[in-house]
């Protein structure tokens, strides 16, 4: 049987790995290249890197942070793909098919496109036709509003009127191979997944849904699987701030009878 994937998400800002909270507060926690060894030790099912550098920020910050500039993300990808023999998804700041070409040609297996999939829906189809649906992950950011959920684009800054479920179905029709669903209000909250929207979305589409946002303890993965019916459960912060978090999360799920990949090396 297909395993439920446990996916570490790494947020990149100006070429560094950061912790994200509510899409607004960020704290630098490491250098992606230095973390490579750790990533391999994790024996992760998959890695998702999201560049959340604000548009225009690169030039402002690069001097004081001694970074090489916007091309860094491609450089990071190139190095990672040399020694990480697992699926790699890169996203954030993708505006055009040329951006996608650059990620795929440098070792990404999939691209994650969020805002631009909304502003330019044809891009989803273009990517799917060029590289296959499996390479096209559409990101959807939601924020709880009363009993429902509103959808946001532009890194959580712009609220749009679209229903997230209807939008997800459209994305599927356009060629998306997976949906990565992130809850803005749960991001960095450590309150657990918003399983209401996850389960609604998993029911709304026939492509895999990756749940993200809110994991603060190992206990939080299970509701994403049981109640959310997500095909994959993703998290950011917990994997950085808890010692051996990835292995421990896997171990705990495995012990409880969950169908997760459990290599001997763990």
């Amino acid at each position: 049987m297909l395993k439920t994937r446990i996916i570490p998400v790494l947020y990149l800002m100006n070429g560094l790995i950061v912790r994200s909270e509510g899409f607004r507060e960020f704290k630098v926690i490491g250098n992606p290249i230095n973390q490579l060894e750790r990533l391999n030790d994790w024996l992760a099912d998959e890695l998702v890197y999201i560049d959340i550098t604000r548009d225009g920020d690169y030039d402002l910050r690069r001097d004081d942070m001694k970074l090489k500039g916007a091309d860094d993300v491609i450089g990071i990808l190139r190095q990672i793909s040399k020694s990480a023999f697992m699926p790699l998804t890169f996203g954030g700041r993708i505006k055009s098919i040329e951006d996608v070409d650059s990620f795929i040609h440098n070792g990404a297996d999939k691209v994650l496109i969020n805002s631009q999939a909304y502003h330019q829906p044809g891009l989803v189809t273009e990517v799917a036709e060029k590289y296959g649906s499996q390479a096209m992950v559409v990101g959807i950011d939601v924020h709880r509003e009363g009993d429902g959920h509103a959808m946001y684009v532009d890194q959580g800054r712009t609220r749009v009127d679209d229903d997230p479920l209807a939008y997800a179905r459209q994305a599927e029709e356009r060629g998306a191979g997976e949906i990565m669903l992130n809850s803005i209000d749960r991001d960095g909250s450590a309150e657990g997944y918003d399983t209401d929207i996850i389960s609604a979305m998993a029911a709304a589409v026939r492509i895999p849904v990756i749940a993200c946002g809110g994991v603060g303890t190992f206990e939080h993965f299970r509701p994403g699987i049981d109640k959310g019916h997500a095909s994959a459960v993703a998290a950011g912060n917990i994997f950085h701030f808890t010692e051996n978090a990835y292995k421990r999360a896997k171990k705990q799920l495995h012990r409880r009878g969950y169908n997760v990949r459990y290599p001997n090396d763990i």
């Binding site: 049987m1 297909l2 395993k3 994937r5 099912d45 499996q134 191979g177 997976e178 095909s231 994959a232």
Partner: peptide, 10 residues
Amino acid sequence: LRLPQIGWNE
């Protein structure tokens, strides 16, 4: 059953 099959299978 979701298609494509995406992920790890034994």
